[in-house]
């Protein structure tokens, strides 16, 4: 579904991503793990169209058709092509209500009834959002905002859902809850690209995983393999 070849990204004069290859198949949860500044966010932002002037090839095929080159497209185009990003730090619009945030997520769509149905679907996934539906986004707790960010990304009905650090700043119990729901969303058919510093949580649900270190992929394999890998255990799973 997504095929990245030899991706190079420069961020503020630093060569942040140095020629990585990543491939994502339909129906998978793929995770990029690594420390802060390893280039995970840059990669996901490049796919979403937020990074200009990177080198390499990003190909995307929505169904069986020929892959389309994503390089140089605008973020709003990506959404229409079925790629949605829940950005790092949640980026909830603080002055809009929870429900308005969800409606904004459905901006590219015009099918009113289906949108209403999808809003209900998000409320089913995250019942707490339903209680908060008419509250301003800025007044929600960190966990609720994260749920809202994931729900909002779902509202465009993406084929590929990209989540940038969904565990950031969440209490450990909430991390479990959010990751259970991510796995549930995947079971319902969404392909997911997950960028995470919380390697343990991410590897547990991932079909495929890549470890990024200063812009290079150092280890890759299935989530299970990486959980057992001594190098990963040492560096990311606390020995």
């Amino acid at each position: 579904m997504l095929d990245i070849q030899n991706l190079n990204i420069w961020y503020r004069g630093i060569h942040a991503v140095k020629g990585i290859d990543v491939s994502i198949d339909k129906g998978e949860i793929v995770t990029l793990i690594g420390a802060n500044g390893a280039g995970k966010s840059s990669t996901i932002r490049a796919i979403a169209g937020l990074v200009r002037g990177f080198k390499g090839y990003i190909g995307y095929s929505r169904s069986q058709g020929k892959p389309v080159r994503l390089n140089g497209r605008q973020p709003e185009e990506m959404v229409k092509m079925g790629i949605a990003l829940s950005p790092e730090g949640r980026r909830i619009l603080p002055q809009l209500t929870a429900e308005e945030n969800l409606r904004l997520g459905a901006y590219t769509r015009d099918d009113k009834e289906e949108i209403a149905r999808d809003i209900d679907y998000v409320y089913d996934l995250f019942p707490r959002l339903k209680e908060r539906r008419s509250q301003k986004g800025g007044t929600l707790s960190g966990g609720e905002q994260q749920m809202l960010a994931v729900g909002r990304a779902l509202m465009s009905r993406p084929d590929l859902l990209m989540l940038d650090e969904p565990s950031l700043g969440l209490a450990p119990m909430l991390v479990g809850e959010v990751f259970d729901i991510i796995r549930e969303i995947n079971r319902q058919g969404k392909t997911i690209l997950l960028v995470e510093q919380n390697a343990f949580a991410a590897l547990k649900i991932a079909h495929k995983a890549y470890v990024l270190e200063v812009g290079t992929i150092t280890i890759q394999g299935t989530g299970e393999e990486l959980l057992q890998d001594p190098r990963v255990k040492d560096a990311y799973l606390g020995g």
Binding site: E76, L104, G105, Y107
Partner: peptide, 8 residues
């Protein structure tokens, strides 16, 4: 930026 990510 976030608004663009919503397809606007």
């Amino acid at each position: 930026e976030t608004t663009r990510l919503m397809g606007v």
